[in-house]
């Protein structure tokens, strides 16, 4: 046992100390080099790393632009103006879906690029209920809904009256093969509506777009053309074709939610 006590300190310690010093030095030297191979570049290194490894999302929309701090927040589907397809013949439809009540502010996406102000005048913006015309605009189509004759041109519907035609609210059930200019896609209640001229169109399996009853609880970025301001329980609202639109601040800007008093 005495041999044991004297053996280790007198022979092993210096050698092991040297080995330890060499080993630790090698480890300390090699770590950054190995780390660099794994992308662990030292701070302030000149070579930037690749930052675009993740696949690009298809479409994103932020509630606003111009903030770095909130660049990752509020990324939603972008309801966009729909691109038009060539005109085709219009077929009237009778299979009208019943009105849908959508739980407000659930699964509802609205256009949130709130501050973009581009003047985009659309034909249907000029709609005025009851306005009379002696001649229909060039490019109109004739259609019948439930046996009632209508005429249509780019988001505005007309009915014949004595001495001419008058502009009427978009009739539920009307089918068009091309969305009106400026239609905005709005996802609500699990389906996509196309909102234009105060009407909510739904895409059908045969490729046509049919006016559905206005969903209640959906939020739209703009009022229907010609909506009339009214007072409901002392607060301001707008009325269009029997549906009420309540202005609310959403994402810091005024938008409109459909409701029935």
């Amino acid at each position: 046992m005495n041999t044991t006590i004297h053996f280790a300190p007198s022979i092993s310690k210096p050698k092991t100390g040297r080995r330890l010093a060499v080993g630790l030095s090698a480890l300390l030297v090699s770590l950054p080099l190995i780390g660099a191979e794994h992308g662990g570049a030292a701070p302030h290194a000149a070579a930037p790393r690749s930052v675009m490894s993740a696949p690009r999302p298809v479409v994103v929309d932020r509630s606003n632009h111009g903030s770095i701090r909130h660049v990752d927040t509020h990324i939603n589907q972008r309801p966009v103006e729909v691109r038009r397809v060539p005109e085709q013949r219009i077929e009237p439809r009778r299979d009208i879906a019943p009105r849908r009540e959508i739980e407000p502010r659930r699964d509802v996406f609205v256009h949130r690029d709130v501050d973009v102000d581009i003047h985009r005048r659309h034909f249907s913006d000029d709609f005025a209920f009851g306005r009379r015309l002696s001649v229909l605009p060039v490019g109109f189509f004739a259609l019948q809904i439930g046996g009632v004759p209508y005429f249509y041109n780019d988001g505005i519907y007309y009915q014949p009256v004595t001495g001419g035609y008058q502009e009427v609210y978009p009739p539920v059930g009307a089918a068009v093969t091309q969305l009106p200019d400026g239609a905005i896609a709005i996802d609500a209640g699990g389906q996509t509506y196309y909102y234009a001229g105060g009407a909510f169109y739904l895409l059908q399996p045969d490729g046509t777009y049919v006016i559905a009853p206005t969903p209640i609880g959906v939020v739209v970025p703009e009022l229907p053309p010609g909506a009339v301001p009214v007072s409901v329980n002392g607060t301001i609202a707008y009325q269009f074709n029997g549906i009420y639109y309540e202005p609310v601040f959403i994402n810091g800007v005024t938008q409109y939610e459909t409701f029935m008093p």
Binding site: R62, S63, G66, S67, R69, H70, H74, D115, N251, G252
Partner: peptide, 17 residues
């Protein structure tokens, strides 16, 4: 609060903080 609770992001707010 404005951003997280009400979705209000002011442009250029990075320079206000």
């Amino acid at each position: 609060v404005a951003s997280e609770q009400f979705g209000i992001d002011m442009p250029l707010e990075d320079f206000i903080r």
